[in-house]
Each structure stands twice: as structure tokens, then as C-alpha cells.
Design a protein around this nucleic acid. Structure first.
Lengths: 225, 225
DNA sequence: TTTATAATATGATAATTGTCATGTTTTATT
DNA sequence: AATAAAACATGACAATTATCATATTATAAA
């Protein structure tokens, strides 16, 4: 099994602030997992007792609303940590995590990493920075949800996915989402999301190959008011 | 000037985790301020170089949207810290803080408290907990914005303000907000907020005395679907 | 391959919400 | 107290978005 000390992934998240000794200890207690597309990693209400270090793949964090829809709040990709908040609060998760494609993760039990959070100020400061960033992002999402149209929100979602997660060799977005997922990111009905995507296609802003989406005019999408 | 060590307010926020020595030092560099209703404490883009400990009064944290509206993201009341995120990130503020009534605050320069954040793990863990809580709250707001009607959101805002900030002796909400503020919390047009409040009044769920609002049926508001 | 099932697509219509106009009341100012 | 300004309120209408119906494709299963 891979060792945390040598893992390239750790460079991209807070684990980089751990000392070599701490990494060795964690390496010995971590467990590697392959998670299949569609698998629910944890549900709302679950006690998540550890963090997942995402070595490959993508998952969505969502929250079920009373009307039966599953609002996507955040996406976690390769290199990031999943379930950080479980380290800090003893409360159960308020979100559900679902794999969007096949994933490879390392699970680090809370019990092992908690001591580091308490003793290594560099590590805890790093986690703090991460959370501050998430919070800033959440503020932006709130404002967008409250003040922008479905058309604008969907355009921004496409831009966000493009810029943050990149594209395949053929130019299509590397994160493959269903139309329903798009609707759940934007917070609208699936039909509305589909309609707006069709509209974007007609306007030449995007093109589609099956469910794959290719952005044809980033500038055009940015101009949408 | 009051001393931090003896300040009752500190019990309600992360400062309680500081040692007596740390509090004495902070006490010597903090500055007390009276902030008048309507004053902008800091703006979007400002470098906030410290935290405000709110001893009295309430302020709103908002973010200007392109359509000219000012979405309220959070409210900070007596006992809480304002500007915590400035400690963690070097970026400028993404939010504007505005006093909703006359406030009394202590300003603690970032330079003085940063060392404590780095050295006192209990303190940093407390800040971490606070942020995790804010993040959880932000998730809920996102879901509400995305999935609920203006009517539902306004009902929930009233319940939230009632439960979190309490009522005056006559039963009216102790936080006095304009109709525009309500609209900016809920993320709707001022006219829409006014209309829904009028509707609630007709239905006997609330009553009003001038711009003061009194909740007549908390149960009724909770039942709104 | 055939068949079943799910995902995508689009039209028709209803419900919600925003915008503009306008009037009333409250609050602040002279 | 008189006046101006702001906040509140409501109607009329337009724009946006949701819902339901119904095709049409993709995808998975037999």
C-alpha cells in the first residue's frame, strides 16, 4: 500500500503541513478504498469519523431538501480532503457525499488525526484556511442563488467546472454530470436546466457530444447577464 | 477602559479559550468603539486587519450583487466576533459589514492575536469550530435559496430571528429590520417581501406595530410549505 | 439483438416572482 | 408644526420558472 509520506496528492491539501513522523503514523492506520460511481460515501446524519483523502475521482456534497431535491453544495476532486468538518465538530454530517465517478480514496480515522490537529498549529492553521476559503465560496453561492437567474447561474456553473476541473483532450468538460446534476447545482428543475443548455447550444455557446459538454465560447458565457 | 479578562462577552466566543496572560496583552492593545446605526464597518475589498468583539448591538454581513442588491449573508450579534476570517486569510474581505443599530465593539489588531492563533491550539480549535458552524449554516442557506419559495424563506427568516436574537418585552422581534433588509435576507424584491409580510398579517401569523414585527403563531409559520 | 429503463428533450400551461406605477404612512429635518 | 424624504403598501402587468404531458433518444439488462 502507498505511503502518505511519498503520496503526491498530499501536496494539494492540508496534510502537507504534517511532519514526516506524523505522516508515517497516519500511513500506518489509513485504509485505501476504491469507490464506485454512484456510491454514497456518507449520508446526511451519519457520524463521519475521519477524513477521506481523494487520490482520484470526484464526488458531490449535497443536501436533501423537503421537496425531494438534492441540492449540490460543493464538489470535491482529486487532491482535496473530504469530511474535514467531522474533525472539528462532533455533530453528524449535514451533507451527503456521492461519488460522481469511480474514486480512489484513503480514509484516515478521526482518532489518529485529531491529535495532530491539536498539537501541530501549522496543520490546524491550514485546515482553518481551507474552511475560510469554503466559507467565502459559500457566500458567493448564496448571493448567486438569491440574485441571479437560472440562465446566469448555469452559465457560471459551466465556467466554474471548466476552470476548476478542466477539460478532456477533445475539449469536453472533464467532469461528466447528468442534466439532473446540473439542475441540482443551479437549484432549478431538471427540465429548466435542460432547456437552458439547449438554448446555450442554439446560441453557439456550448456544443454537446452525447451528455458531454464542450464550451465553445467562454467569453460568451461570461457575458450573460 | 474595560479589561478583556473581566469582560463577560468573551465567554460567548472563541476568546474564552485564551489564557489569562494572552487576554491581558490583548486588553492593552484593543480599542473600544461606538459605532452608529447605519455605519459601514468595513466594505467588500477592504483589508480587515483585526477582529471586532461585539459587546452590544447587531450588524449585518452582506455582499453586493451585480443587480445592485445587497444580499445579507449573516448577522452578527452581541457576544460574537466579527471579521474572524481576516485572521486566517490574507485576502481582502468579500463581505460588507454594516451596523443595524448602535453598536459597542472592541477592535483587536490582527498582529496581536495572530500569535495566539498559531500557538494556542485550544483557541485555534475554537475558531475552527466556529467556522465549521458557519459553514453548516451557509449550506442550509444555499439549500433554502435554491429550493424554497419566498414565502417559505421569509417564514424561516422570521423564525430564525425570533429564535436566535429573541424578543422585546412586548413580544416584538428584538432585531428591528427594514422591509428592505428582510428582502435582502430572503433574496427577493422589497415589494415581494412586503407583500408576503402583509399576507402573513392577514393570516394572523404575525402582527405589526409600525415596522416592528410580532410573531403571533410560531407554529403557523413553521407549518408553511 | 431485443427489450426495458432511464436520461434527455420540448411543448403547453400554471404558478411564482419581479418591475413599474402610484398612493399612503412614517420619520427626519428645517 | 410644516415640509421633505424615506419607508411602506398595493395594484397591474411582465418575466421567469415550475409542472405536467409526451416524445425521443441513450443506456443497461435480459
Amino acid at each position: 500500500m502507498g505511503k502518505c509520506e511519498q503520496c503526491i496528492i498530499k501536496q494539494f491539501n492540508s496534510l502537507k503541513s504534517l511532519t514526516k513522523d506524523e505522516l508515517v503514523r497516519i500511513s500506518n492506520c489509513k485504509t485505501s478504498h476504491i469507490i464506485k460511481k454512484g456510491t454514497v460515501i456518507f449520508e446526511e446524519g451519519d457520524a463521519v469519523n475521519g477524513v477521506y483523502c481523494v487520490k482520484d475521482g470526484i464526488c458531490k456534497l449535497s443536501k436533501l431538501s423537503e421537496n425531494g431535491k438534492d441540492q449540490i453544495v460543493k464538489m470535491v476532486v482529486k487532491g482535496q480532503l473530504l469530511g474535514q468538518r467531522s474533525l472539528v465538530s462532533d455533530e453528524n454530517s449535514n451533507l451527503q457525499a456521492t461519488a460522481l465517478n469511480d474514486m480512489e480514496v484513503c480514509f484516515i480515522p478521526k482518532s489518529e488525526i485529531m491529535a495532530d490537529l491539536q498539537k501541530n498549529p501549522k496543520f490546524s492553521f491550514d485546515v482553518l484556511k481551507d474552511m475560510a476559503h469554503d466559507l467565502k465560496e459559500a457566500d458567493d453561492i448564496i448571493v448567486n442563488m438569491a440574485q441571479k437567474s437560472v440562465r446566469q447561474r448555469l452559465a457560471e456553473a459551466l465556467i466554474y467546472i471548466h476552470d476548476s476541473f478542466g477539460v478532456n483532450p477533445d475539449g469536453t468538460l472533464s467532469v461528466l454530470l447528468s442534466r439532473e446534476d446540473f439542475a441540482n447545482i443551479v437549484g432549478t428543475a431538471t427540465e429548466s436546466a435542460i432547456r437552458v443548455l439547449s438554448q446555450f447550444k442554439k446560441e453557439g455557446l456550448i456544443s454537446t457530444i452525447g451528455k458531454q459538454i464542450k464550451i465553445e465560447s467562454l467569453e460568451g458565457l461570461k457575458r450573460i447577464e
